[in-house]
């Protein structure tokens, strides 16, 4: 555990080197930390607060205020279901329900094995393909419950192949 803390601090220090000590760099720094670590661990937020000379609670405030930031590690694969207007109308909720049912998690959670995390996003700009699901960075259009099964199945198959190869 101690070792992990050290790496977090090191990463954060590395990132902070590129920024001047000014409050207005808070969001860009947090962004970069999250890009590096996948989420914002408490230790990282403390470090950022210390470096920028602002109260930790302000950093925590910003991290919880903005939808971009997450406070727990994401799954290996991120499933984002579009809940924009067009997708909502075309059955986005149905797709979201299907993922919740199949993965046995609620929106915003990660599966216990750390494989998938399930999230909602607002319009990803492909309304003509509604309902849309973004799996990692790949956009899937016209997602029905059957397609949900298909998406998950293809990951399962991929994983099995991987295991056979190893």
């Amino acid at each position: 555990m101690e070792g992990k803390k050290e790496t977090i601090s090191n990463y954060v220090c590395e990132i902070l080197k590129n920024y001047s000590v000014e409050r207005r760099n808070l969001l860009p720094v947090l962004r970069e930390v999250q890009e590096k670590l996948g989420y914002l661990p408490v230790r990282a937020m403390e470090k950022v607060a210390e470096a920028l000379g602002i109260p930790t609670v302000d950093v925590y405030g910003a991290a919880t205020f903005f939808n971009l930031f997450r406070l727990s590690p994401p799954g290996k694969h991120q499933i984002k279901v579009c809940m924009g207007t067009a997708c909502f109308m075309a059955g986005g909720q149905i797709a979201l329900d299907s993922f919740e049912r199949r993965l046995d998690v609620r929106t915003g959670e990660t599966t216990p094995d750390g494989e998938f995390s399930l999230e909602e996003v607002a319009c990803v700009g492909c309304c003509s393909l509604a309902p849309v699901v973004v799996v990692d960075d790949f956009v899937e259009g016209n997602v029905t419950p059957t397609r949900v099964d298909g998406i998950l199945l293809s990951w399962d198959i991929g994983k099995k192949k991987q295991r056979e190869q190893d």
């Binding site: 000014e22 969001l27 947090l30 405030g61 910003a62 903005f66 971009l68 607002a122």
Partner: peptide, 23 residues
């Protein structure tokens, strides 16, 4: 400057606040 995903930040004063490192 990339925003961090908050609808209200489209409002001018909120946008400025977030650029200055506040909520």
């Amino acid at each position: 400057f990339s925003g961090a995903g908050a609808f209200v930040c489209g409002e001018g004063t909120a946008l400025i606040n977030s650029m200055e490192g506040g909520m």
